[in-house]
Write a protein that binds this DNA or RNA. Structure first.
Lengths: 149, 149
DNA sequence: AATAACGTTTACGTTAACGTAAACCAGGAG
DNA sequence: CTCCTGGTTTACGTTAACGTAAACGTTATT
């Protein structure tokens, strides 16, 4: 029932070679996105699958990237922001400065979310206060009409 | 130094008539939005200023609405959502069901925000873990090169 | 050979929330 | 009368993140 394409690679140059290969449909199904979206992410530089002829072939690394993209979306990042984040996550130009910058960027987002949280809490307490007042007004009104019910 | 237009209204029909009148520029300046935005909000039914000839005249009530619109934006609501919220806030079709629905809607948003908060906390703890590992790798590397610095 | 299933590229369409002119009116200053 | 300032309407432009064809190229199966 495994949906891998071709055969697994047992590369001679070590590390773990669990490099399964997925078609664009596989990824789309597994992550519940459209193929259009996947091609779009590639067009925007967020994914770089290999090619076998014309067709795209995605690796486990691509799945990780996609995971990050989608996580970014859930957090309200734009694709460009996610691109940045991924580039920093990537152990390519791996100096610690990048990592710290990444952390900073995410903490910024955290601030915004906390601010939102506070605002929405204020809004809710406002509303519940109103609710109390409305209820009180209603009961008084029903008393005014001499137990209408 | 008051930027009111014309004279204040002392309406005979009671309540508080602190109805100051503002031009579109006044509102724009006070809330740091463009006049274009204000006209746009009106076009979308979020504001309904009076007219004096062609010109729009905004009241204190309009300022409240605008406040809600902007608060909505900060919370990530679309204009349509804000429109709903404002309609519910508005003591026009004032039955308590509306109010409860409004509270529900906002609590939904609250859930989403809390979810985001959790996700971002996860991300951060992940990143900090990585950071530790990177640092450790670096120190070991420098020990390997026999205190290179 | 024909059909189906899956892939590709190219390109125009869509929604949201305004930005950015263009063209025009109204009234007060000089 | 002319110019400025500030307001108005109409309407096309813009960005983001894909959706939705259209037209066409592989295999594999019937």
């Amino acid at each position: 029932m495994k949906k891998t394409i071709g055969k697994a690679q047992s590369s001679a140059d070590g590390v773990q070679a669990v490099d399964e290969r997925y078609s664009i449909r596989d990824l789309a199904k597994d992550f519940a996105v459209t193929t259009r979206a996947l091609r779009f992410y590639e067009e925007r530089g967020l994914l770089r699958p290999q090619r076998k002829g014309q067709s795209r072939i995605y690796s486990a690394a691509d799945r990780v990237r996609l995971t990050l993209i989608l996580r970014g979306k859930r957090l309200g990042f734009t694709l460009d922001e996610s691109a940045e984040l991924i580039a920093m996550y990537d152990p390519s130009g791996n100096n610690a400065g990048q990592l710290q910058a990444l952390i900073d960027k995410i903490q910024e987002k955290q601030q915004r979310i906390n601010a939102q949280k506070r605002e929405i809490e204020l809004m809710l307490s406002d509303l519940k206060e109103w609710e109390q007042r409305s209820l009180k007004a209603l009961t008084e009104l029903s008393r005014g009409t001499k137990q209408n019910q």
